[in-house]
Lab assay of single mutants.
Amino acid sequence: SGNANTETLPSGWEQRKDPHGRTYYVDHNTRTTTWERPQPLPPGWERR
C-alpha cells in the first residue's frame, strides 16, 4: 500500500531518479529540486 519512501517526505515532495540512477527530490510547492533529502517538519510546526 504505497511506497514507504514517499510516506516520510513532507507534503508536496517527490523522490525521483536522474538518468544516472542518482536519487533527487522534487519540491512541487516551490518547483525546485535538491539532492538533499528533505526533513519532515518537527511535530507542532506548520509550514507557512
Rank of each mutant, 00 (worst) to 15 (best):
T33K: 07
P43T: 09
N3T: 12
N29D: 08
R37W: 00
P38F: 00
R22I: 11
S11V: 14
K17M: 09
W35Q: 04
R48T: 12
A4F: 14
K17V: 11
S1I: 09
R16F: 10
Q39R: 13
P19R: 11
T33S: 10
L9A: 06
T6K: 15
N5G: 05
R16C: 10
L41F: 12
E36T: 12
P42C: 08
T8M: 14
Y25Q: 06
A4M: 15
G12Q: 05
L41R: 14
T30G: 05
E7L: 08
S1L: 11
E46A: 08
T8P: 14
N3A: 09
R31A: 09
G12F: 02
G21T: 01
P43S: 12
T8F: 07
T30M: 04
Q15I: 15
P38E: 01
D18C: 04
E36K: 14
V26I: 15
A4R: 13
R47P: 15
Y24Q: 03
T23D: 01
R37P: 11
L41W: 12
R16H: 04
W45Y: 14
R47C: 14
T6W: 07
P42Y: 06
E14M: 03
T8W: 06
D18E: 05
W35V: 04
G12C: 03
P40C: 09
W35K: 04
Q39S: 13
R37Y: 04
W35D: 04
H20I: 04
L9C: 05
R22N: 13
W13H: 00
R47M: 12
Q15C: 05
T33Y: 04
G2V: 10
T33N: 01
P38D: 00
L41G: 12
R48P: 15
K17H: 11
R31S: 09
T32D: 02
G2F: 11
A4D: 14
E14C: 04
N5T: 12
T6A: 12
N5K: 11
N5E: 00
P40F: 08
D18R: 00
W13C: 02
R22H: 10
E14W: 00
R31G: 08
R37T: 09
T6V: 12
P19L: 05
A4C: 11
T32Y: 02
N29C: 04
E46G: 10
T8H: 14
P40Y: 05
R48A: 15
T23Y: 09
Q15M: 11
T33I: 00
Y24T: 04
L9P: 03
H20D: 15
T23C: 01
Q15A: 13
G21R: 02
P19A: 13
E36D: 14
D27W: 00
T30E: 04
E14G: 02
R16W: 03
G21M: 02
T34R: 04
R22A: 10
R37A: 09
G44Q: 13
P43D: 14
P10E: 02
W13K: 01
P40H: 08
N29Y: 00
R47D: 12
T34G: 03
P40K: 14
H28I: 12
L9K: 05
T34H: 13
P42V: 08
Q39P: 09
E14F: 00
V26D: 05
P38Q: 02
P38L: 00
N5V: 07
T30P: 00
Q39T: 14
A4Y: 09
G12M: 01
P40E: 09
